[in-house]
Design a protein around this nucleic acid. Structure first.
Length: 838
DNA sequence: AGCACGCCGACT
DNA sequence: GTCGGCGTGCTC
């Protein structure tokens, strides 16, 4: 190095950088670390780092801010490691994460935790190993029994985790024990940090390049190898796949190693050829996803669709959000496709959100044909590694277009032009547990604002709030009232269950109307869908003698009876137990199942129609990765005659041979104690009804109800969204519910019922003082007052939409919660916020 | 959220 | 004594 350079390097004033790091901990702030000199030039916002946090924890975080201000009150630790030279999350996204944390009243760490696919997070675990300079057999130190046990285990296994040791000596707290071993110089503590994401690799084989480049060499090789037929066969197989003689440049890529075994060629001869340097083995990183042709086809829109599209485009001229209200089967998807193509041609990215149950193979493969490899799919049934690949594909620009579920809003886009939120009204866009309790639909508005992108909401049954905003001109509104092709609305019939019961016409819980309709459909070789939004066999078991009902031991709910596994299960905490043979209260064996779940319907239908195939589709039958597709395929192929299911059967599926849909128990949905129960019933009923009669034939829907006169039934039957909307809006206005107010649910949890109650009362009083009593409801015991052995109390905050400084109000609420938690004895409570609950 | 530390009761 | 339970405070 020359004198000058040396001087430059030493005399240049190097700045000391500090990184504010977002860590996946529920503490509402970033943590400041010092950037080591060697990372000064490469540390960037959005890169992952490894840091020491607390005494014995190592965490991965993301740099949220870089600055030069040393913290005043403490000495910042150094970053241990910089994992990325390029951001894994876009700097723009840091703002989004912060917005979500603020709006949904949780911590940045919780948001980050949700946003990053777990494959990009690193796990770390404290491990113990023997000190390299320690020799147990030579040591003169005294070790007690437990210490000896640990040392001997380490001599055998070399590395043990805390959990291993705890199990080994059967003791929960082992820290002091380890500390003494460290002090004695017997063991070392270290942190093992594992990168979870592993690229998928493929082993390939090629000819050594020297041979490929030299025809003569290659020819003489063949001559020399003639006596070894197995090796010769391998070489011939290779030359068959790769024409090295004429195209030596093609040798570089080689062929898959597995192709040799598939062709039944000898593995050991292959090994020999590699060993002798004739062939070479090498590895390449490959995608976990199959590759597809990007056969960008033009979709042809009908005049009506084209008109709707034009309306959307012109509405986007003025408004950032538009609502496409198009009835089921009106061909919204084609409009989406056309809009997506246009956005992609304009070089901007597109995000297409669908609720979990609507993101089916049907829709994905349809879009795949059009968008090919440009399209990424982000789904919860994907593995961690696959999700990381989609994430990286968005970063690298490979995926310009992503179709995904709720969590896809966190993907690292940097240039979105369009976000489509299909089935906008779906409650599954709202995450309920754990934090962040965000609504992907509403988050997409914020993303769009940052990217100057447009949002298109789509629904056949828009949520009351979206329709309201559209009617008020806050969003654009585009109506699509015609069914695609010649499809017509189905015929509806309401079966009067009370009358039927009195006349003893019911078969089980099936009305004659439904039974007859099923019979008729079956005789025409048509398929049937029966909808019941309750999984399991029956919601509970009851002793016929004394009325005893088996309850969950951790939650205040009755246990659902699941017949096929013969167990009672809690749908809240997952607790399971064997079905009791006798009543635990009175000893009677006369236990009866009460109520109907999909499982019981499946059984009853099988009994009523013994010769036909009944299949159930719910959470329990679709847990495995492909089971959902299998059921759908079976149904499409006609191997299933009656499909019984929960709301899973209501979405995104087109079956040509279904003309009858039965809604088994609409009252249960309607009387759910929640201000959205009518809305949800209208939406679900309309959606399932849409499964009936898609082509030439007029479909038929039979709704079983005990109250045939309720007005909502006629709104469903006549498809009268506007009547329903007007009615519902009036109710919401009267009782002060959204869209006229914003709600924040505050849940107070404590292992002790009394403490939960005290804390809740205290908090409610403070809030009433601060916000005005009329804005605070409760505290009340929620419907389910105990979950996982924690007692719950609920306070609801209602805020009118105008003249309220939301940020300020939320700050006050946080402060009051903190105040309650500072009180002696109440510290054990946990306070959870659910903003805009669904 | 973890995790350590300190204080207290229970048990070999 | 020591173990484990619980309450409390802290994490750059």
């Amino acid at each position: 190095m020359s004198q000058l350079e040396l001087q430059n390097n030493t005399s240049t004033e190097r700045k000391t950088w500090f990184a504010d790091v977002i860590l996946p901990v529920p503490i509402p702030k970033m943590f400041t670390y010092r950037v080591p000199m060697e990372f000064n030039d490469i540390a960037c916002i959005g890169a992952r780092v490894i840091v020491q946090f607390g005494h014995r924890k190592i965490l991965t975080g993301v740099i949220g801010r870089l600055h030069e201000t040393p913290p005043a009150k403490y000495e910042a630790k150094y970053l241990l490691e910089l994992l990325d030279e390029e951001p894994v999350i876009q700097p723009l996204q840091i703002n989004l994460l912060q917005w979500i944390a603020d709006y949904y009243m949780c911590t940045l760490g919780e948001v980050l935790n949700m946003a990053l696919p777990s494959g990009l997070k690193l796990s770390s675990e404290s491990k113990v190993q023997l000190h390299p300079h320690f020799d147990y057999y030579e040591s003169e130190l005294d070790f007690n029994e437990k210490e000896t046990a640990i040392i001997e285990a380490l001599l055998k296994d070399e590395v043990l985790s805390y959990g291993d040791i705890s199990k080994l000596i059967n003791q929960k707290t082992i820290y002091s024990l380890i500390k003494s071993l460290v002090y004695k110089g017997a063991v070392l503590l270290f942190e093992e940090v594992k990168e979870k994401y592993k690229p998928k690799k493929e082993t390939r084989i090629r000819l050594s390049q020297a041979l490929a480049d030299d025809k003569k060499e290659l020819e003489s090789l063949f001559e020399s190898i003639e006596k070894k037929p197995k090796q010769e066969a391998i070489l011939l197989h290779y030359l068959q796949e790769v024409p090295v003689f004429n195209h030596p440049e093609k040798n570089k890529e080689g062929i898959e190693k597995s192709s040799f075994t598939q062709a039944d060629l000898s593995t050991s001869s292959l090994k020999t050829l590699v060993k002798n340097g004739i062939l070479e083995e090498f590895q390449v990183i490959i995608s976990r996803f199959d590759s597809y042709d990007a056969a960008l086809k033009e979709v042809t829109l009908t005049d009506i669709q084209q008109q709707a599209k034009d309306e959307i485009m012109s509405s986007f001229q003025e408004k950032d959000i538009s609502l496409l209200h198009g009835i089921t089967g009106s061909g919204k998807t084609e409009i989406y496709i056309s809009l997506i193509q246009e956005a992609l041609q304009g070089e901007s990215q597109v995000l297409y959100l669908l609720p979990e149950i609507a993101l089916t193979t049907q829709i994905v493969s349809r879009l795949r044909k059009i968008f090919g490899d440009k399209m990424g799919v982000y789904h919860s049934k994907f593995s961690d590694n696959e999700r990381v690949e989609v994430w990286k594909g968005v970063l690298s620009g490979k995926y310009q277009f992503v179709i995904g579920v709720r969590s896809a809003v966190f993907l690292p886009f940097d240039n979105l032009g369009l976000i489509i939120v299909d089935e906008e009204h779906e409650s599954s866009y709202k995450q309920y547990d754990p934090a962040p309790r965000y609504n992907a639909r509403d988050v997409s508005f914020v993303i769009a604002r940052e990217h100057h992108a447009k949002v298109l909401l789509g629904s056949a049954t828009p949520s009351i709030e979206s329709q309201y905003h559209a009617q008020n001109g806050k969003y654009g509104l585009i109506q699509l009232n015609k069914r695609y092709g010649s499809g017509e609305l189905p015929d509806f019939k309401v079966a009067d269950m009370v009358r039927q019961k009195n006349k003893k016409l019911l078969k089980g819980e099936f009305s004659t109307e439904l039974i007859e309709a099923i019979n008729q459909a079956l005789s025409l070789k048509e398929q049937v869908i029966v909808f019941q939004n309750r999984r399991g066999y029956s919601p509970y078991l009851m002793c016929q003698e004394c009325g005893w009902v088996p309850k969950c031991e951790n939650c205040a709910v009755s246990l659902t009876y699941h017949q096929y596994k013969s167990e009672l299960r809690c749908h809240y905490c997952g607790y399971k137990e064997q079905v009791p043979s006798a009543c635990e209260a009175c000893g009677s064996t006369n236990m009866k199942t009460i109520g109907f779940g999909t499982e019981k319907l499946e059984e009853e239908l099988s009994l009523l129609f013994p010769d036909i195939k009944v299949q159930r589709m719910d959470l329990d039958t679709t847990r495995k990765k492909n089971s959902y597709d299998t059921i759908i395929k079976d149904f499409e192929n006609g191997n299933i005659d009656i499909l019984v299911g929960t709301q899973m059967v209501s979405k995104g599926l087109d079956f040509d041979n279904v003309n009858l849909v039965g809604i088994f128990d609409i009252d249960r949905m309607l009387h759910f104690p929640d201000f959205r129960s009518y809305e949800r019933t209208f939406q679900l009923s309309t959606q399932v009804s849409g499964r009936a009669g898609r082509r030439e034939k007029k479909g038929k829907v039979i709704i079983q109800s005990r109250d045939t006169e309720q007005p909502i039934l006629s709104q469903i039957i006549t498809h009268n969204y506007n009547a329903f909307y007007k009615n519902e809006l009036a109710e919401r206005s009267l009782y002060g519910y959204p869209p006229f107010t914003r709600l924040i649910n505050v849940v107070i949890k404590n292992k002790e019922a009394q403490l939960a109650k005290t804390a809740a009362i205290k908090l409610a009083n403070l809030l009433k003082e601060q916000l005005g009593a009329q804005r605070v409801l409760g505290p009340e015991e929620p419907l389910i007052s105990r979950i996982r052995n924690e007692y719950l109390m609920e306070v609801v905050i209602k805020l009118e939409r105008s003249k309220i400084n939301l940020t300020k109000v939320k700050n006050i609420i946080q402060e009051m919660a903190l105040e309650v938690l500072q009180e002696k004895g109440l510290k054990t409570s946990r306070i959870i916020f659910d903003v805009d609950p669904y």
